[in-house]
Amino acid sequence: MTYALVAGVLFGLYFSLVGIGLNLVFGVMRIVNLAHGDMLMLGAFIALGVVGIAGIDPLFAVPLAFVVFLLAGLLLYWVLVPRLQGSANPEMLSIILFFGLSQVIEAVTTIFAGTSERSIQSRLLGSVFTTIKVKWFGGKAGGAGPIQILGQGFPAPWVIAAVTSLIVIALVYLYLYHTRLGTLTRAVMSRRDEALATGIDVDRVSAAAFGIGLGIAAVAGVFAPFMFGSITPAFGADATVTSFAIVVLGSLGNPLGTALGGIVYGLCYMLVQTYLSSWADLLPYVLLIVILLLRPSGLLGRRVRVA
């Protein structure tokens, strides 16, 4: 039980990281990025690349993935979004558009990388810390062993991913509440029409949110091979649904609510895995539907547009 709970919190923090980018994009742009999971998948391939080509700690993939996808997001925004918002039904069409994008990404990745499952040895993650420890404080080199929490051993990558998630959530908080662009972002999230009317550069705010959202998704992707064991180009579609479940669980349009959604999801995930493992696959879908129907605004939210 302790094991399941602690593992649930560790996974939960990671799941927050998985969902937060999707929520940021939705909150600001009212667009569901159905290619979100594919950004994770590509982030995972950046980690694979860093290990495979450079042979260094996959943690170095974190800043790389973030910067690459931040720029990709900005570019993508300027190419796709203005045309989309000129159309009759941007919300519906954006779903279809980003679905198309996700298909393109999955196909291109499959063409270059094949469909086989890929994984990274988990001792590689965080090896930079071990190296530093060895160099500065002495001691002997070796793989990072399991980390002890409450008397139970957990794989080091889980803990590293959870810590990274905490850092990223804190940074998102700082961005939203202590920067100018972040304040404008919150204004756009709560009242898009009024923000437009008051002359806020909604395009600039949205582009930034889109870029940051994609960047965070890619960062989450870096850890995916460690959290889920392995990765294939088809991972994206499942990751999108899971992310949506997490986001809805927290509160759609409130990125920090995602942290709560992620932890609740992580706990459910671990408890079901432990006690009802044959039905674990159903969890994200059933949870998503139940939450949407019972509390469409999420655990924290106020209200949401329904038909």
Binding site: M92, I95, V241, P284, I289, L293, A307
Partner: peptide
């Protein structure tokens, strides 16, 4: 009862 994207995603999940 759900509209737009919510319906689409919930239906996919279903």
């Amino acid at each position: 009862r759900l509209s737009g994207a919510y319906f689409a995603i919930a239906n996919l999940a279903a």
